[in-house]
Lab assay of single mutants.
Amino acid sequence: MASQGTKRSYEQMETDGERQNATEIRASVGKMIGGIGRFYIQMCTELKLSDYEGRLIQNSLTIERMVLSAFDERRNKYLEEHPSAGKDPKKTGGPIYRRVNGKWMRELILYDKEEIRRIWRQANNGDDATAGLTHMMIWHSNLNDATYQRTRALVRTGMDPRMCSLMQGSTLPRRSGAAGAAVKGVGTMVMELVRMIKRGINDRNFWRGENGRKTRIAYERMCNILKGKFQTAAQKAMMDQVRESRNPGNAEFEDLTFLARSALILRGSVAHKSCLPACVYGPAVASGYDFEREGYSLVGIDPFRLLQNSQVYSLIRPNENPAHKSQLVWMACHSAAFEDLRVLSFIKGTKVLPRGKLSTRGVQIASNENMETMESSTLELRSRYWAIRTRSGGNTNQQRASAGQISIQPTFSVQRNLPFDRTTIMAAFNGNTEGRTSDMRTEIIRMMESARPEDVSFQGRGVFELSDEKAASPIVPSFDMSNEGSYFFGDNAEEYDN
């Protein structure tokens, strides 16, 4: 783990906690998980779902989305002020799938948001429990990260689609708070800032007046979040320049895209947490497990152990491969979309394939898809080993990566060399080191050039047997250095459309 220093740990961010010791953190995270579980059980009762239907990941996603929508204050306010045809701002819903006479049927349900809020609060001892809501947002974000390569979004903001390893959390809503900021990748933060800068260039009043003052505060806050992700002084200094700019424009845009590229080699610290679907927490609570009393951590053995003992089902389209669908969801559960496939294969105990080789589309089923041909199958979400999630980018030494994705962002704290394609990355730096950030740029390029592919990161860190909950005997895996390590390699994943 990167030293926490003055930073709060993510469990504290996750639970809005002030400084807590490890036991208190485990208890408050457990409380959050228990609340999600209780809410899910109650919703299944309301909807009269069978046990099997309640364990269907598509039903879980609909129920999670309903509660997130019920608590989305800004959108609710907007919907009330701008009524649109056929949208009731006070209601929320989605597809629920039921097994009827041996076939899967889709039923569109509609609930009062007020009623959903009441059920959620009741499951969370009367609190709004925003930490639990954020947790579900991060699960949705991790699922998107594993399912889609955001080529269009990258290109629109002047970045290269091969930089997708920097895009963790790119679909997280803005209201996801400190826990959300911690899991956002460098590219995601750059993209958010670039969008602001572009608006400022096109709209003279963007930075002016009372609204402009708020915009400015948001801009500086985002700059500080991004600065905190960088691990070298030169990158941090460049972020200070971007933040202090009187009138952010093209120079800042250039600096930010430069920094994003540099992060492929001088990786930023991005938190990883295993956020599971509500249909995993519900049955665990129903079986009598007391998360608050037992304590829970999002970055240790607990999620692995929970998945070892969970039964989750998914709808499967006619030509999809259930094992591939399982891999997709497994990666999402562990926030591992940008991790090295060699490491993932070792931990999972079966070969993890790149996205383009998977015969599976996303987990969600569109409303126009034919239910007649839908089957369902068990998702295999178990693992051979477990490993500690990392909050750091690993040290800054790398190795060759593949054509589709030119770097990785480690999820697990496991000893290995970190793949990246130096030639491709360095070719993108057209040696432009003039301007006010020239000395920093020169320094950053120097550090990137001296990074050695064969150097090892996370020295001495290994994986653990599932029986080793105290992480007492690390097993340090050895990897084939020459092997392909990137998930979005030469990829044809669908595009994420909101």
Rank of each mutant, 00 (worst) to 15 (best):
G200Q: 05
K236Y: 04
L353T: 01
Q122T: 08
S326N: 13
G17D: 00
P277Q: 11
G180M: 10
W386L: 12
R26V: 06
P477Q: 05
D240M: 04
N144M: 13
N417L: 00
A337R: 00
L193K: 04
I25H: 02
P95V: 01
S383K: 05
R261Q: 11
L49H: 10
R156N: 08
P410E: 08
E18Q: 14
I36Q: 05
D203Y: 09
A181T: 10
S141W: 04
A337W: 07
K357Y: 14
A472H: 15
L264R: 01
M196I: 12
A123V: 14
G300T: 07
A85H: 01
Y52L: 03
Y52D: 01
V242Y: 11
M440F: 09
E254G: 11
N368K: 10
E81T: 00
E469I: 07
R121L: 12
N430G: 08
E494R: 04
E294K: 01
T62F: 05
L328K: 05
A2H: 04
N224A: 03
V29F: 11
N319S: 13
R293A: 12
G169W: 06
G185I: 01
M32N: 04
E449W: 10
M13F: 02
E192P: 03
I109N: 15
D72L: 00
N125P: 05
M448K: 14
G86L: 13
D51F: 00
K357P: 00
M196T: 09
N430Y: 13
Q364G: 05
A70V: 10
G102K: 10
R26G: 07
G288W: 11
P474D: 04
E114F: 12
E369C: 07
Y97V: 00
R118C: 01
L166Q: 14
I408Y: 00
D240N: 11
S413M: 10
C275S: 15
S297M: 04
W104G: 09
F464D: 02
R391F: 12
A237F: 02
A337N: 06
N76M: 04
V299P: 10
F338W: 07
M426A: 13
N250W: 15
F488S: 12
Q308D: 00
K77W: 08
G132W: 05
Q405E: 06
R38N: 04
Q327V: 12
